[in-house]
């Protein structure tokens, strides 16, 4: 289950010599997937990196005046514009480098949650990708607006109970399937688009390296369990990200210059979706009598998406 990479594989031995660029002491919840994702991302990079951060959990919890957890240049300006802000930073870098005012080679990453990426920031993201900035946009996807209190987003899975699509007696949670943003980004014909998961750090970090080495804009969607919103145990974040992949809810794949590669195919070991949703309180009502159709529908959605991804690999793979 390695990526089809030209990059050298990341080893634990090399990582132990590197400083964490997101320090401890930040105020993200215990067990949150997002800081794990960010630390893996930053450990994967060897060049100086500048971060643009959308408003959200990650932003408010890592830079609360007068403290900051970031050991790299970091900027937040608003919710819907991490990609546009990063566009400006990256363009100024090129302008100053052209004039010889900056000598260093720098990399640019924008972080947003699924709210700031799939929804309110979608236009700015699309624009930045189309313009071809040399930047990597990373969405840490926990499937709802967790920062404002677990409201539905277009990344929220089918059936989930959120505070704006609560599972009630008439409407049993979210009735729509999630938006598939990674494919939408791939449809922008960006240099590199991929999905990753923190349980497979080697795959995630190799993808970050490839994304930053590619010629043009890159996008990564990374699943980031949220125990507050998912109603799960605080120590289950990595387990749940693994199950998201093993049930094919969150397939690991990458699209490099139009070539689709599935990085992990469970083949006949594909787990039923119930294994991922059973431990999550937000799906509790799916197991209530009368809602069997929801479990069936959820499984059907996952199966269809997985089959269609395999077709894409079949058609546009190596």
């Amino acid at each position: 289950m390695s990526t089809t990479t030209k990059e050298k594989p990341v080893t634990l031995k090399t990582l132990t010599n590197k400083q964490d660029l997101l320090s401890g002491g930040h105020r993200m919840c215990a067990g949150c997937g997002a800081p794990t994702v960010v630390r893996q991302v930053l450990l994967a990079i060897d060049e100086p990196v500048v971060i643009s951060n959308a408003t959200g959990c990650l932003e408010v919890s890592t830079c609360l005046f007068p403290y900051t957890a970031w050991r790299v240049p970091w900027m937040h300006s608003a919710f819907e514009n991490a990609a546009a802000t990063a566009s400006g930073i990256e363009t100024m870098y090129r302008a100053l480098r052209k004039k010889g005012k900056i000598k260093k080679n720098m990399k640019f990453i924008a972080f947003g949650g699924d709210g700031g990426t799939y929804d309110i920031g979608f236009q700015a993201l699309s624009g930045a990708m189309e313009r071809g900035h040399q930047l990597l946009y990373i969405c840490y996807d926990n499937g709802a607006y967790m920062n404002t209190g677990i409201q539905r987003s277009s990344a929220t899975p089918f059936g989930a109970n959120t505070t704006t699509c609560p599972a009630g007696s008439k409407i049993p949670g979210k009735l729509q399937k999630r938006k598939d943003l990674t494919r939408i980004m791939a449809a922008h014909n960006v240099a590199y688009a991929a999905q990753a998961s923190p349980h497979n750090w080697r795959d995630l970090m190799t993808k970050v390296k490839k994304a930053l080495a590619s010629d043009g804009p890159a996008y990564m969607g990374i699943v980031a369990p949220c125990n507050r919103g998912w109603r799960t145990q605080t120590d289950d974040s990595i387990l749940l990200s693994r199950l998201a992949v093993e049930t094919c809810y969150w397939p690991l794949y990458e699209v490099e210059n139009g070539t689709w590669t599935i990085n992990y195919d469970p083949k006949d070991k594909k787990k039923p979706i119930t294994e991922w949703i059973k431990p999550q309180g937000r799906f509790k009502h799916l197991f209530a009598p009368g809602n069997e159709w929801m479990l069936e529908k959820f499984q059907q959605i996952v199966d269809e998406d997985w089959e269609s991804l395999k077709k894409l690999q079949g058609t546009f793979g190596r």
Partner: peptide, 17 residues
């Protein structure tokens, strides 16, 4: 850019840079 919101956002990023 693709909107004035992004125009000012990009200006802010660039200026801060």
């Amino acid at each position: 850019v693709e909107s004035e919101h992004s125009a000012m956002s990009a200006c802010i990023g660039a200026s801060a840079a």
